[in-house]
Each structure stands twice: as structure tokens, then as C-alpha cells.
């Protein structure tokens, strides 16, 4: 039976590789992860080259302003100041620059670690995972829903394929493709990080970045597992509705609706914090962000509340996968496949 499922996985891949969609989704995932890497690189380079910048003047219409970099100030290169600017301000800026140079070292080390190996891998995987939630929902809804829409499900099932075997093969393939996409992202990041590292100047002084190869491996596993609940959600809705569009729409709408609802309610009702700790998106964020980024992401995405812990997130996400998967399998096993959409 397992052999039959693996045979189906193989032939599902035979089909899927001939569609444009998975390749486009992969390209988007790689593109966004690399935008993050190279964005960090250019931001770092700008910081290193300028040492930080100030803008003086242009207080009124028609007034000229001037950009003053810390590196110029500290090197004694005094810019021409716009009229009306007290030259004494430069001394204050020089003092600020001296203080910033010390404080900035940590930030620069963090940035440098973000686009060079091995720290770039977990960063890129984190971005790919965030983007991947949408992409896997689209892929799952499309690969399952088109079978209803095209009427090909009939053609598949009357070959003696077996319903649960077929659905299992589809879901296994999409899960494997999600993992493969993350591997591709990691490999591209490996190459691009090496290039970015070579293009960057000397690494900032001090201890290297906090993220290492172990983090890269852990983040790979976390990123992959973090994609599966959205795969289960999109698959479940698609099978219940026999529609790709509904599967995509509900999964994507849920993502945004949860963010908005949590952001509003968690600040209004204290009790909502407990409920929010069992919502899908919040647990994915908790699962992915890890301890060091929890406060920042919590503040940005879901209000002020702290995220649940890793174990809590793992259990909640596992429960979502199992429940949504069970609903999908049960409905798929029982539904009549008649008419063009199998409804």
C-alpha cells in the first residue's frame, strides 16, 4: 500500500512539473528571500560607507539642505553648511557620531551576520517561510481544486487509484515540494551570501553574529513544519468546497483576518490573549520567531501580547494539521464525484 502511494507521488510529480505554477511560486520564494539578503547587504554597505548620516537645513521652501555623513565628520571633512546653520552644530554631530559608532557595532554585526554565512540561511528561510504560507496555500488549493474543476478526478479514481491513497500522495508531494523549495532557497542563499560576503568590506569588529549552522538546520525544520498547517487549511477548504478559488481565498483571507482580529481584540479584551494563543497564524509566528525576536514580532504583528512558547506552538500546529487533515480525508473519502466539479 505504501508502495502504491509512493508510485502515485511519483506520477503526481510527473504531472505537476509540467505546470508553470510551481516554478513561478518557487521563483517568488527565492526572489523574496534574496531581496532580503541583498537588501540587508546594501543597507550594511551604506552604513559602513557613511557611518550614519544627518540631514541639515531645508527648513523652509527654497532653502538648500546638506547630507552630512559621520565618516566625513570624524575624518575632519567639513561640509559647506547651508546659510543660517550654526557651525557649532557640527561639534554636537561629531559627538553623536562618536557615540553611534560604538553603539552601531552590534547593529552592524547583526546586519553582517544577516547576509553572510551561516546566519544568512536562517534569515532567508524565515523570509521564505513567511512568503511560503501564501504560496503553499495557492499550490495546495490549485493542485487539489483543479482536479474537481477539470473533472479529472473521475478519470483518476476510476483507475482504481483509491481515494485516501490519492489524497495522501497529493499532500505528501506538496509537503516534499515545500521542503525542496526551502532547500533551493538555502542553496541560492549559500551562493548569494558567499558573493555578498566577498563584496562586503571587512567584517565588523567584535564577536560574530548570534546565528550559526545549527540555527540554520533548526530553522530549516521549523520553516518546513510551519508551512504544513496552511497546507492542511487550504487542502481542507478546497476539498469541502471542491473549488481552488475557495481554497486559496479562505486560506489567504484567514491569514489577514487573524492578524487584524488579534491586533484589535487583544488590546481590548484581556481574556482574548488566551484564545489568541490557540490561533493558527499566531502559533506559526511563535514557532518561527524564536525567543530573541518574540517581542519585536509580537509588537508588530499581533499587538503587545507575548507569543506562546515553542512547545505550545508545536502542539497547537500539530493539532491543526491533524484536525484539518482528518476533515479533508473524511470528506474526500465520502463525497460523490459526479458532475464536472464532483459535487
Amino acid at each position: 500500500m505504501i508502495g502504491h502511494v509512493f508510485n502515485l507521488v511519483r506520477w503526481e510529480w510527473f504531472k505537476l512539473q509540467r505546470r508553470w505554477m510551481p516554478w513561478i511560486l518557487l521563483a517568488l520564494m527565492v526572489l523574496f528571500s534574496q531581496l532580503f539578503i541583498w537588501g540587508t547587504f546594501f543597507s550594511y554597505r551604506n552604513q559602513v560607507q557613511s557611518g550614519g548620516e544627518f540631514f541639515l537645513g531645508a527648513g523652509g521652501p527654497g532653502e538648500r539642505g546638506v547630507r552630512v555623513s559621520c565618516n566625513d565628520l570624524l575624518a575632519g571633512r567639513i561640509p559647506d553648511l547651508p546659510p543660517g546653520i550654526d557651525p557649532g552644530v557640527l561639534e554636537q554631530l561629531r559627538l553623536s557620531c562618536t557615540r553611534m559608532t560604538v553603539e552601531r557595532q552590534d547593529q552592524l554585526r547583526e546586519m553582517y551576520s544577516g547576509f553572510t554565512l551561516p546566519g544568512s540561511i536562517p534569515n532567508a528561510l524565515g523570509v521564505a517561510q513567511g512568503m511560503g504560507l501564501f504560496l503553499i496555500a495557492i499550490l495546495a488549493a490549485s493542485t487539489l481544486g483543479t482536479e474537481f474543476g477539470w473533472g479529472t478526478l473521475r478519470a483518476v479514481l476510476v483507475r482504481g487509484t483509491g481515494r485516501w491513497q490519492y489524497l495522501t500522495a497529493k499532500l505528501v508531494l506538496i509537503s516534499l515540494l515545500a521542503g525542496a523549495a526551502l532547500v533551493v532557497v538555502a542553496i541560492v542563499t549559500l551562493v548569494s551570501s558567499a558573493a555578498a560576503g566577498a563584496l562586503a568590506s571587512e567584517p565588523p569588529a567584535g564577536a560574530p553574529g548570534a546565528l550559526g549552522w545549527t540555527d540554520a538546520m533548526i530553522n530549516f525544520g521549523k520553516a518546513w513544519f510551519g508551512l504544513l498547517p496552511y497546507l492542511a487549511l487550504a487542502a481542507c477548504v478546497t476539498i469541502l468546497t471542491a473549488s481552488s478559488a475557495a481554497g486559496m481565498a479562505v486560506a489567504l483571507a484567514y491569514y489577514f483576518a487573524e492578524q487584524i482580529v488579534v491586533a484589535i481584540f487583544i488590546n481590548v479584551f484581556a481574556w482574548f490573549q488566551t484564545m489568541a494563543d490557540y490561533l493558527l497564524g499566531r502559533n506559526i509566528s511563535a514557532w518561527m520567531t524564536g525567543n530573541q525576536q518574540r517581542t519585536l514580532r509580537g509588537g508588530l504583528l499581533t499587538g503587545e501580547g507575548a507569543f506562546p512558547g515553542d512547545l505550545h506552538a508545536f502542539l497547537v500546529l500539530s493539532a491543526y494539521i491533524i484536525v484539518l487533515g482528518a476533515i479533508a480525508f473524511r470528506r474526500f473519502q465520502q463525497r460523490d464525484i459526479s458532475g464536472a466539479s464532483g459535487t
Partner: peptide, 21 residues
């Protein structure tokens, strides 16, 4: 009902797929 095979596959690839499964 109506014949329904994969629109993005060739006739040959469709038949190979159904043989395969």
C-alpha cells in the same frame, strides 16, 4: 460523462500518467 483529461499535458503524457498511476 465528457472525457476530462489534463489540459496542460499532451495526449501522450496524459496516457502515460494514467498508465503510471
Amino acid at each position: 460523462e465528457t472525457p476530462a483529461l489534463y489540459p496542460y499535458l499532451s495526449g501522450r503524457a496524459n496516457l502515460r500518467y494514467f498508465q503510471g498511476i
